[in-house]
Amino acid sequence: MSDGGRRGSREASFSVAMHNRTRSARAAIRGRLDTAYEGQRPDPPEESYLRPTDQPVPLSDLERFLERLREHQVGYHLVAGAEELAELMANQIYAKRGRKALLDNRGVMLQCRLLGGLRQRLLDVIVEAVGAGLAADQADFGITPCEGLIAETGTIVLAADDRPTLQVSLLPGRHFVVAREAQLVVDLATWMATHPGNGRHHILLSGPSRTADIEKQVVIGVHGPWKVSLFILRDGWEQR
């Protein structure tokens, strides 16, 4: 990783031969597809094909979402305000003997001054924001905000624009997510409708890393975090 910058930032100087190769491959593939159309261009796109609406939600969105989280083995806490959030999170980090916590310090995290709140309560734990020098693979806790919560599938939407930020929710063994109750929507369609593609990287997170590759037996915690906890700030948290 140390020499990653050099490798990655170096301008890709592809040889002329490769440029020619991809150009001729492109033309060949296009030609074969065109031939298959037998001279006829395909139908213009019909936009009217069936898109079933998602089923109605029997429970309230929040109840349903929490039920899903339990099924997906995601821990959750409903918290009333910033103080309670910092207190609860600090207690958990302390209880699990955390040594180093890395924060993706954006949005709601700044609003509730979580970095300061944790540092104040955890004097012998290193608590850093991304970019301050703590590498994600050294941290045992990664703490991130999120972009949305989806009730139907019990999904947390994460977003990131660079590798260091992506790594906060991936490399540490425990991942804490901070969300606002208002971020909860019924389904992915609703979320997508309110969050038009803005070229960012999104991750739909529905549980801790797992595998069932051996005898189909589910094993939690492989490459990604083996513990995910969600802290939901209840509506009206700004006043508390």
């Binding site: 997906h72 019990g154 999104h202 991750i203 739909l204 997170l205 529905s206």
Partner: peptide, 9 residues
């Protein structure tokens, strides 16, 4: 699964 643990977009 109703959703996999990670869907990267």
């Amino acid at each position: 699964q109703r959703a996999t643990c990670y869907t990267s977009i």
